[in-house]
Design a protein around this nucleic acid. Structure first.
Lengths: 346, 346
DNA sequence: TTAAATTACGCAAACGTTTGCGCGAGGCAT
DNA sequence: ATGCCTCGCGCAAACGTTTGCGTAATTTAA
């Protein structure tokens, strides 16, 4: 058992043919005679020959790889989106080079650099929540590497992205809570660097305006999406003169942290205070006290669309259609999901 | 702004030097004069030159990449292990090519093939729960690609692996439940293709034997780790003449499904029936009814160790130490974690 | 002054594949 | 018999980098 895999040269040597004949024979090129092709194939099988992708990539100037950077793979949202991306990529014979930034801007920059060095053909990114500068993304344009953002989108000009309409989702959430009788509704928002945060706030304001209610800025609080940050945010809301009877949280994890803390303060969940979240993760099905509703953001669809767009950009590039100045800005409508049989305290 | 990145050839042409001089200059080779080196570096910066990793990989016959295949990234256990692997890999300047098999044997085979075609230097695998044949792993030996299993380990000869001692963890779990007064304890086990399943069963039997209790095979039930399979398994246990008052579940997800179903059957959790699980995931902190204890399996440590072993094998290989016949079989001791203040029904 | 040693570069091959172009042999038409 | 066409192969370059070995010029020592 030889230590090195067989190459075309080995087959050529064994059959006393040239390397180019063997390469063509393996690819069923019509200029190679049938018997010669058959001999080549048989010898390839015998030597367990497998093409070396690195050599092919060098020769073709493409790596047939797309890079994907997400903040945290353990978040079902991101791993769902990634599963969708993998599905599309597999269908189009692309490899996915996956990395997680752990919401660390420095690591995110390093990962973008590494993706560039690996000459990924294109890149899909969900930005880290703490990322506040985007030169590392700008630099990719110099290398002509197509880039599509999804879910968490930076506030940058001239970009492709797939996102969810958080504004309308927020409006639905507010309408739902207002219909339930709530008049003082808090919002635990995310970092202001995220478009998603400003969208949520916009939706919140629009919903109040539409219902002829006054917007009280002190009921909208930012947090860093950590458990500690969430506690502080809830504390701030509960200390408000207009103590909220309902809170919309940035996502299910924030809801989970907020609910846990509310219980520690001896609040009766779904009586003293109700929660609505974003993401509608399966996690909530098993939570002790789940939010009464959640805004579905269709991560699988977002991942799917982002991958589609990227591969479309790649195929345009291959066809040398550099006249692309239009930017994809896909917004998927969100959907408020009311939880059936929200847990009451027994 | 040129569409293609600059290469060493461009620098060479611009400075009227040879390609080899430029390559050596970029690497501070002592045979290149200082002024020449400085000129080369300045021109490289000016042209935004960045080395092409594909070319380097071809020339060096290594990809500086390790492949990692796990069943499901959304499981915190696997994503934690992957974070540990990434940490080690980054330190040693390796890229991680990550893929998820979704417990699908066919997809797992395809991913192994793709990893091989990409000439990953080594591979880390946590086997899919439904994988029942392992030729796809055997074939890697032909290509001299080092392979280390972690967490879910196939029953195969001559392999490297890092696992957790499920036997002693199971014994601790049984001891804990026996000490609490339970005498009829069920076990919802996993697929029999997994070593982890037989280890759990062995631990279960040994614990009973050590406590001079009879082993009743009908109290050990296999399931496929799905929600549906878990329901059936619990049903079977509850229909037992010796209806268990405690159940040890294969992992936290199985516990979650089992508890949900038990509640549907109007059983009082932690009164009529208690659960102990494996994995000790953070998820359980937010569960409505969490298992009273869980066996910690240290996924970060497992990932860390698996990556260490693989990189050690790779560096032995680079030093041409083919005399390796010893196989790494690392077992990390598990640890039963009793949950503080297990939820009582209020 | 001459020979030997050292310095600073360049040539060419290699890694493994693809592919444009060319050539020799055989077949067919005139 | 000769010229043209087609078939079936091979040569060589290329992709972008690294590196073994060689050479010319300069410096140093005898």
């Amino acid at each position: 058992m030889r230590s090195k895999p067989a190459t075309i040269k080995d087959i050529a040597r064994k059959l006393n043919l040239s390397v180019s004949t063997v390469s063509r024979g393996l690819h069923d090129h019509p200029s190679i005679g049938l018997t010669t092709r058959q001999k080549i194939k048989a010898t390839a099988a015998e030597l367990h020959y497998e093409p070396n992708q690195t050599a092919i990539f060098l020769q073709k100037g493409t790596t047939q790889t797309i890079g994907v950077i997400v903040p945290e793979l353990s978040e079902a949202f991101f791993s769902t989106a990634v599963s969708a991306i993998e599905e599309i990529a597999n269908k189009r014979n692309y490899t996915v080079l996956l990395a997680q930034s752990h919401d660390d801007e420095h690591l995110e920059k390093h990962l973008v650099e590494k993706m560039k060095n690996h000459r990924v053909d294109g890149l899909l990114v969900s930005v880290g929540k703490n990322t506040s500068s985007y030169e590392h993304f700008e630099k990719l344009k110099q290398y002509d590497i197509p880039l599509v953002f999804f879910d968490r989108i930076p506030i940058m000009p001239n970009i492709h992205y797939v996102g969810c309409n958080m504004e309308t989702g927020t409006i639905e959430a507010l309408n739902y809570l207002l219909k339930k009788g709530h008049r003082s509704i808090g919002l635990i928002n995310g970092p202001s660097t995220l478009l998603a945060s400003s969208e949520r706030k916009e939706g919140y304001i629009k919903a109040l305006t539409k219902n002829r209610l006054k917007f009280d800025p002190s009921l909208v609080v930012s947090c860093d999406l950590t458990e500690d940050g969430t506690q502080k945010a809830l504390q701030e809301l509960l200390a408000n003169k207009r103590k909220p009877t309902a809170v919309v949280t940035f996502n299910d994890y924030v809801a989970l942290y907020a609910i846990k803390y509310a219980r520690e303060l001896s609040l009766c969940i779904n009586k003293d205070i109700e929660f609505v979240s974003y993401a509608n993760l399966p996690l909530a099905n098993y939570m002790q006290y789940a939010p009464v509703a959640s805004v579905e953001q269709f991560p699988f669809l977002q991942g799917h669309k982002a991958a589609d767009i990227l591969l479309d950009l790649l195929s345009q590039k291959m066809r040398n259609q550099n006249q692309q100045t239009a930017y994809y800005k896909i917004i998927i409508e969100s959907q408020l999901i009311e939880r059936a049989g929200t847990n009451d305290q027994d």
